[in-house]
């Protein structure tokens, strides 16, 4: 690739994560799940705003918001968002501890990734039990 204003050639910039090159391993799954749960939480914001708008409106609006929360769509949204927030919260703490330089060895990173994924699984079961 030719860079503007220079006659040097540059290799194309590497794009991460290079899914087709790296072998799948647990910390990588934890990292991608962090992105996925973050996207799920962003998508949950409009839903939350809509429910909040209803809950702070007239008493009829409030009742409708409660009905929406109890509908299959509402329960599914709550379930996904609850799992996402538990996972993103725990793995976020994991990332902050890694930034602080704690538990950075390969074994510890694998272990902590397993732990946060396991907590997310427990959250899925727990909230599933609460909602259905």
């Amino acid at each position: 690739m030719q860079h503007k204003g220079s006659n040097r050639t540059y290799p194309p910039a590497p794009m991460s994560p290079r899914l087709s090159i790296y072998r799948w391993h647990i910390p990588m799954i934890a990292s991608i799940a962090h992105r996925a749960s973050g996207m799920a939480l962003i998508l949950f914001v409009p839903f939350y705003l809509w429910v909040l708008h209803g809950m702070t409106g007239t008493p009829e609006d409030f009742d409708q918001a409660v009905v929406l929360l109890h509908s299959p769509v509402g329960r599914l949204a709550l379930w996904i968002a609850d799992i996402a927030v538990v996972y993103h919260f725990c793995n976020g703490i994991r990332f902050l501890t890694l930034d602080a330089g704690w538990c950075e060895s390969q074994q510890m990173m694998r272990l902590s990734a397993r732990i946060v994924l396991f907590i997310a699984l427990l959250a899925a079961l727990f909230f599933g039990w609460l909602l259905w």
Binding site: Y48, L52, M55, L69, L78
Partner: peptide
């Protein structure tokens, strides 16, 4: 912002669960 969210993000979920479970009326 992550540190701020550690404290503030659970709150709206508590609100939603309070209303969902019927513990909070309007």
């Amino acid at each position: 912002s992550a540190v701020l969210l550690l404290v503030t993000l659970p709150l709206p979920f508590l609100l939603l669960w309070g209303v969902y479970s019927g513990a909070l009326n309007q």
